[in-house]
């Protein structure tokens, strides 16, 4: 049993090496910003350990610095993280044992979703998935804590560290593309983003994801019509309801 656990941990450490290299420096820059916002250093640890949603934490820092009402904090959290509802479509939660699912859903970040989205993750055990998520959070929390401590000691800022997040998503896009070479999907995504940026500049992320999901559903329907009629019992237009959330 112990041997299997050690193997899962080692595998997860290798799985998360690249993600860690972007989460850690990004955590450091978040920690520095926490101190710059006037908060005590350990709030960086609290934010990253308890909320654990990177882009929301960066936004929240600006909100709490200006003592924004809690209702508005709640709405922001809802809009920024609305995209996570889509991750339930493919995240292999059923492989995680029931007790572990509490943590697996809590730590279902963009990075955790991306790591499990690829072809190679099909064989991952529940323990390996949990270790992967725990390690990702470990990089993030320790980076933020160190950054906040360093930021309260040294008044120096490194500009441009936040590009690590962009580089990470670029790399994940290329990897996902290699798993599923289909040009229309990324083109639809880029067009959805442009549309969302034009029409809903305040909530680009959920709007773009809703438009993208809707366009994939339309494409699916068109394709079915083009193909011969295949009998199929599951034809409810399901996730449109979940997708519509960001669209109004």
């Amino acid at each position: 049993m112990r041997g299997i656990r050690a193997r899962d941990f080692t595998a997860a450490a290798a799985d998360t090496a690249s993600v860690g290299l972007s989460l850690f420096p990004l955590g450091v820059s978040f920690g520095v910003l926490v101190v710059h916002a006037g908060l005590t250093w350990w709030w960086a640890t609290v934010f990253t350990a308890v909320i654990y949603a990177g882009s929301l934490e960066f936004l929240l820092l600006g909100l709490v610095a200006s003592v924004t009402p809690l209702g508005q904090v709640a709405v922001t959290a809802l809009l920024v993280n609305l995209r996570h509802v889509f991750y339930a479509l493919s995240f292999p939660l059923s492989r995680v044992r029931p007790l572990g699912r509490v943590y697996a859903t809590f730590a279902l970040t963009d990075e955790a979703y991306a790591l499990t989205a690829g072809e190679h993750a099909r064989s991952w055990s529940g323990a390996r998935i949990l270790w992967m998520q725990a390690l990702c959070q470990g990089y993030w929390v320790s980076g933020a804590t160190l950054g906040a401590l360093a930021g309260s000691l040294i008044p120096l800022t490194l500009h441009g560290l936040d590009f690590a997040l962009t580089a990470l998503f670029v790399v994940l896009t290329i990897d996902a593309w290699r798993a599923q070479r289909d040009l229309p999907a990324p083109l639809l995504a880029a067009a959805s983003f442009a549309l969302a940026a034009l029409l809903a500049p305040g909530q680009v992320l959920p709007a773009a994801m809703a438009v993208f999901t809707t366009s994939l559903l339309i494409r699916y329907a068109l394709r079915r019509r083009a193909d011969s009629p295949v009998p199929d019992g599951h034809r409810h237009p399901v996730p449109a309801g979940a997708a519509a959330g960001g669209e109004g």
């Binding site: 880029a190 999901t213 996730p239």
Partner: peptide
């Protein structure tokens, strides 16, 4: 959807 979404979602996050 589960097959088509990852590339597009990652691209949207990168653009964001």
């Amino acid at each position: 959807l589960a097959r088509q979404m990852p590339t597009g979602i990652m691209l949207i996050l990168a653009l964001y």
